[in-house]
Design a protein around this nucleic acid. Structure first.
Length: 294
DNA sequence: CACTTGACCTGTCCGC
DNA sequence: TGCGGACAGGTCAAGT
């Protein structure tokens, strides 16, 4: 589910909600993948420890705790990290609609629960069970396969179009969409923002990287920044079941130009948006704005 | 190495 | 109403 803006929105919420809280208990529900307390010995590094920091790299959340361990969390397609405070109304921040998605936790998608010593709780829910959590010594985090391979953060000030162009040189014979979805090329881009940024830069997603003019790659880099910054300001995208740490949906898709807008007119030229398949993913394009470069 | 495809899961929607 | 198939925000391990 979540791409960079969604994971960053969750991180911002968790930074406010769980830092300095002490872990009192963890509980496993249906956890087929790697979860920290599916092994008793790792639980010893969680219970009694305090959350010290919540970081993000690409689509990975990093929850540092005082035992010098870090909980690495990947939400994959349908994972959620939801904080539930103490008391019947506090969990909804007061007047919350009765159809709240976090009204009745745990539910059948709940995989893991972390309870803090003040009674508040953090739920890991994941309908499709692709997501996972792993406990790693904090000093080892930079040496994990994930950290060693992941590409630059597009919202860091140091990221430029020249850097994107350089990193694309090893993926010259694949489509530009497949290339920017590759997390070792660039961190954090997923299916929504790939389509949105390619529309903004007027690049057809199936164009081979070697056929995209350098000028267009430079434009693409700034388009990626632009769509992700806008999405961040809207709390991310809720396509199906994304919610942030407080159970709130994101509203970016109201502002999307092509994603899930097949059959509607392009906001730039009026041509009807089409949906196709590129790199094995549903792909939305304006057939006139995004002609194929050769 | 670079590239593509299927697998991992559950749930929902659409056509018959 | 039921049933089969396609599809869904992401990676991986295989295959070529």
């Amino acid at each position: 589910m979540p791409e960079l803006p969604e994971v960053e929105t969750i991180r911002l919420g968790l930074s406010r909600l769980i830092v300095k809280k002490k872990i009192a208990e963890t509980r496993n529900y249906d956890s087929p993948k790697s979860f920290p307390n599916s092994q008793n010995d790792t639980q010893a590094f969680l219970i009694g420890a305090t959350v010290t920091n919540v970081r993000r790299r690409a689509k990975m959340l990093l929850i540092d705790i005082s035992s010098r361990y870090t909980l690495m969390v990947h939400l994959k397609m349908t994972g959620q990290l939801v904080y539930v405070g103490v008391g019947p109304s506090s969990r909804f921040g007061g007047g919350h609609p009765t159809d709240s998605l976090i009204d009745n936790l745990p539910d059948r998608s709940t995989r893991q629960l972390i309870r803090f010593d003040d009674g508040s709780q953090l739920y890991f829910n994941d309908q499709r069970k692709f997501g996972w959590m792993k406990l790693v010594p904090t000093v080892e985090v930079p040496n994990t396969d994930f950290m060693l391979r992941v590409g630059p953060e597009p919202l860091e000030g140091s990221f430029t179009g020249e850097i994107l162009f350089d990193r694309l040189q090893r993926r010259k014979k694949t489509s530009i969409k497949a290339a920017i979805l590759d997390q070792s090329v660039l961190a954090g881009v997923g299916n929504i923002y790939a389509d949105e940024a390619l529309w903004m830069a007027k690049i057809n997603p199936q164009t081979l990287v070697k056929d995209v003019p350098k000028k267009s790659i430079l434009k693409l880099a700034s388009s990626i920044k632009e769509v992700m910054e806008l999405s961040l300001s809207k709390g991310g995208s809720t396509d199906r079941n994304y919610i942030d740490a407080e159970g709130k949906k994101g509203s970016y898709l109201q502002f999307a130009n092509v994603f899930r807008r097949e059959g509607q007119p392009c906001g730039r030229c009026g041509t009807i948006i089409e949906k196709t398949r590129v790199a094995g993913r549903g792909t939305h394009i304006c057939p006139s704005c995004q002609s194929i470069d050769k």
